[in-house]
Amino acid sequence: MEIILRYLHFISVFAIVGALVSEHLLLKSTLSRKEILRLSKIDGVYGLAVLSLLGVGMTLWLGGIGKPTEFYSSNPIFHIKLTLFVVIGLLSIYPTVFFIKQAKGDPIEMVAIPKSIFWMVRFELLILLIMPILAGLMAKGIGFSG
Rank of each mutant, 00 (worst) to 15 (best):
I117T: 11
K115E: 09
P114I: 03
E109P: 05
I93H: 13
E70G: 10
P76W: 05
V111I: 15
G105E: 04
I108F: 10
F78H: 02
P114S: 11
G63P: 01
V87E: 11
F71M: 06
L62Q: 11
E109Q: 14
G105W: 01
S74F: 10
T69L: 11
V111T: 10
I80S: 10
P114T: 06
V86N: 08
W61P: 00
N75Y: 06
A103P: 00
T96A: 15
T59A: 01
T69M: 14
I77K: 04
P76A: 10
W61C: 02
G64H: 09
G63Q: 04
M110D: 09
K101L: 15
G89M: 00
H79K: 07
V111P: 01
G89S: 09
V97N: 12
P107C: 03
K81V: 02
M58Y: 05
I117H: 03
K81E: 03
S92M: 13
K81Q: 09
H79P: 03
I117N: 01
M58H: 06
I117V: 14
A112P: 00
L91N: 08
I77G: 05
K67P: 11
T69H: 11
N75F: 05
T59S: 01
Q102G: 08
F78M: 11
L84A: 01
I93P: 09
P95I: 04
S74A: 13
I88T: 03
V97W: 15
I113H: 00
I108R: 12
I65L: 07
V86E: 07
P95L: 08
K81T: 06
G63S: 05
G105I: 03
E109I: 04
T96N: 06
K81D: 02
V111C: 04
M110G: 12
L91P: 01
I100V: 15
Y94M: 13
S116V: 15
P68G: 05
I108S: 13
I113F: 05
